[in-house]
Write a protein that binds this DNA or RNA. Structure first.
Length: 636
RNA sequence: GCCGGUGUAGCUCAGCUGGAAGAGCGCCCGCCUUGUAAGCGGGGGGUCGCGGGUUCGAGUCCCGCCGCCGGCUCCA
């Protein structure tokens, strides 16, 4: 048999040769450094036989591509350490994840963060000796027998649930054997730079009705330097955390008296209003008409919409005069009422209705997270009432709108398409059409996306857009959902060209997700250094000495007249201190005025994060600031 | 909601095995009148998250509740 190497050369090998055999044939040093192999582009264990004619690539120790292998192997050492230290612990699964790995255990007694140190020490002790990872294919009965004997019920359950045709493999290092698909390193030797980072609860198979496990998170890198850099990056990212920056910059705050509900302070509300202004102008430009609907409704509305049955635990309900009411968790039923309030013609469609709608959802206490997940938030919502023929054009329009917003802020996003679930409403013809439209819209944008088969809502397929926070956590912001259900429930109709009544299709659309969440992402994205057009104070005038205050106030007044948010630092402090504090407040433009400037009729310009840029007439400053604001530039 | 952690001055934090609540920054007052990242001196400020308990004595130990942090689950 033969395989093809990345340089195009063919390598002849005996039948049944493994990845490691191939590496050995190339050179013994390469064989020693092999972590895994890529067969036709997919990562595979180096112990597996190679298929004839495959494209083969050796992935070496030190390659970023093999990091998941290193981390997975490290997770096994963690499990071994846990077995040594806590006899009777039940092991479950321990996969590599984006920035590390975890292993879920069921401990007889709860463990705390102090135990992470003990576990790490035991791992280091194990790693003092090099242990080979050996792979063994075993029969289902033998595998089952082993874990029954070891009293590992979770492993037994995993084996029982494996498809009948799937081979069962064990990996062993030292005295520890785990049910595992692999791939793994040749030995523990490359495991040097690792750290157990945190402890968390998790549910067996993500099911809250099953036993709660203890998850130990860790990470591993090929070198200590890379590990240190990673840990350092996390520390840096914490500085960008909007929950720290927001209160520090006086943007918003939280109070115990209303958990999960942000209080917007004057500077934060300025950011909010600028964002809202941009959003509503863009909506109008793209043919949306803005509405505003109540936040409290009679329960009958939620019975019509289906929320009363399906979503009630998440809603705030209340009784007024013996009537059931609820605060709205979504705006769609309100918009359906508006649509249904008059006879609609096909000539009225698409009818695009947008609302910055204040919604309340009773989120579980443990999931609240700064501005990212709150109980009271303002969705940048819209509903498009359309004919089935308009699905494609409107989906393209919505995608275009949303991506233009993300691009304005130079933010990266990830798109996901969710298709029909097994249980659903609407006939297959319209699902075909809808899924096709979403896919076409995605392809037209030319951006990569992942497909989550069967993950759509029962009422229609959707596209979700995720943005990433400072710590790499992903938050769903954009969501574009087709809906065949609500128009039915609200008995919505339009008169077609044929003079018959037809059912419209609805598109639910949020792009920012909510103003709260998006501003949270913005703060982290810019590390608080908001672009000029969003900055609460755009220019701060800094008098050198008290005698320059009047001059400074004139300058600030002129800036205000030009529509620029400005202020004066009137305190009797050194200019160095005033600058230091303006920098800390993230003010984009600092204008210094002293004797020289008074004489010349200028101001000295300093931009955030930069040095003295020299003096200019104030009119010139107003000119470029106005232009920068109009163009919504992200950096000056 | 669940698991683990955590809560001390406006902020960041120290406070050992229970024995008179502290520091730096901010704030207030005074001096300095200042040229591009923090001038000097003085002063005020705390029901130690809340409620019980143990103790001669609790910031410290125990129990309950609340908030926050890291996750699980869910979602904008």
């Amino acid at each position: 048999m033969h395989v093809t190497l990345p340089d195009g050369k063919q390598l002849d090998l005996p039948d049944g040769a493994t990845g490691l055999d191939a590496a050995t044939a190339i050179g013994p040093r390469l064989a020693m450094a092999t972590a895994a192999v890529k067969v036709d582009g997919t990562l595979q264990d180096l112990r597996l036989p190679l298929p004839n004619g495959a494209r083969l690539e050796i992935v070496r120790v030190g390659d970023a591509e093999a990091l998941p292998v290193l981390r997975h192997s490290t997770a096994h050492v963690l499990a071994e350490a846990a077995r040594h230290l806590y006899p009777g612990v039940k092991i479950t699964i321990g996969p590599p994840i984006d920035n590390g790995f975890y292993y879920d255990f069921l401990f007889a007694e709860p463990i705390s963060e102090d135990d992470l140190v003990r576990l790490e020490d035991e791992m280091r002790r194990i790693l003092k000796t090099e242990h080979a990872y050996t792979r063994a294919e075993v029969s289902r009965d033998a595998a089952r027998e082993r874990f029954v004997a070891e009293q590992e019920p979770f492993k037994v359950e995993l084996i029982d649930d494996l498809p009948a045709d799937e081979a069962i493999t064990f990996y062993t290092q030292d005295d520890f054997t785990d049910l595992c698909r692999g791939p793994h390193l040749q030995s523990t030797k490359p495991i040097k730079a690792f750290r157990l980072t945190s402890l968390a609860g998790s549910y067996w198979r993500g099911d809250a009705t099953r036993p709660q496990l203890t998850r130990v998170y860790g990470t591993a890198f090929w070198s200590q330097a890379e590990l240190d850099e990673h840990l350092h990056r996390i520390e840096e990212a914490k500085r960008r955390d909007h929950r720290r920056l927001g209160p520090q910059l006086g943007l918003f705050q939280f109070h115990d008296e209303s958990p999960g509900a942000p209080f917007w302070l004057p500077d934060g509300l300025t950011v909010w209003n600028e964002l809202y202004g941009h959003w509503r102008r863009e909506n109008r430009r793209r043919g949306y008409r803005e509405v505003r609907t109540p936040i409290m409704y009679d329960a009958s509305l939620w019975k019509t919409s289906g929320h009363w049955d399906k979503y009630r635990e998440n809603m705030y309900t209340l009784q007024v005069d013996d009537q059931d009411y609820a605060l709205k968790p979504m705006n769609c039923p309100a918009h359906c009422l508006i649509f249904g309030s008059e006879r609609r013609s096909y000539r009225d469609l698409p009818l695009r209705m947008n609302e910055a709608g204040l919604c309340h959802r009773n989120e579980m206490q443990g999931v609240l997270h700064g501005l990212m997940r709150v109980r009271s938030f303002t969705q940048d919502d819209a509903h498009l009432f359309i004919t089935p023929d308009q699905i494609l054009d409107e989906v393209i329009g919505v995608m275009d709108f949303a991506t233009s917003l993300y691009e304005l802020f130079e933010m990266e996003f990830r798109l996901e398409l969710s298709t029909r679930p097994p249980v659903r409403v609407g006939d297959d013809a319209i699902w075909d059409r809808a899924e096709q439209a979403l896919q076409t819209a995605l392809e037209k944008r030319g951006v990569p996306f992942v497909v989550n088969e069967g993950d759509g809502a029962f009422y229609g397929p959707k596209i979700d857009a995720h943005l990433i926070d400072a710590l790499g956590r992903s938050w769903q912001c954009g969501t574009f959902q087709l809906d065949f259900n609500l128009p039915e429930r609200f008995d919505l109709a339009y008169t077609g060209a044929d003079d018959h009544e037809h059912r419209p299709v609805m598109i639910h659309r949020a792009m920012l997700g909510s103003f709260e969440r998006f501003i949270g992402i913005l703060i982290e994205h810019y590390a608080g250094d908001l672009p000029l057009w969003l900055a609460p104070t755009q220019a701060l005038v800094l008098p050198i000495a008290d005698r320059h205050v009047a001059n400074a106030e004139q300058a600030a007044a002129a800036l205000e007249d030009a529509g620029l948010r400005s202020g004066v630092d009137r305190r009797t402090e050194s200019i160095g201190k005033k600058i230091a504090e303006a920098e800390a407040r993230k003010v984009p433009v600092m204008l210094v005025v002293g004797d020289r400037e008074a004489e010349q009729g200028t101001v000295s310009v300093r931009r955030r994060g930069r040095r003295d840029l020299g003096s200019q007439p104030l009119a010139e400053v107003v000119g470029w600031m106005t232009e920068e604001m109009r163009a919504k530039k992200v950096a000056g």
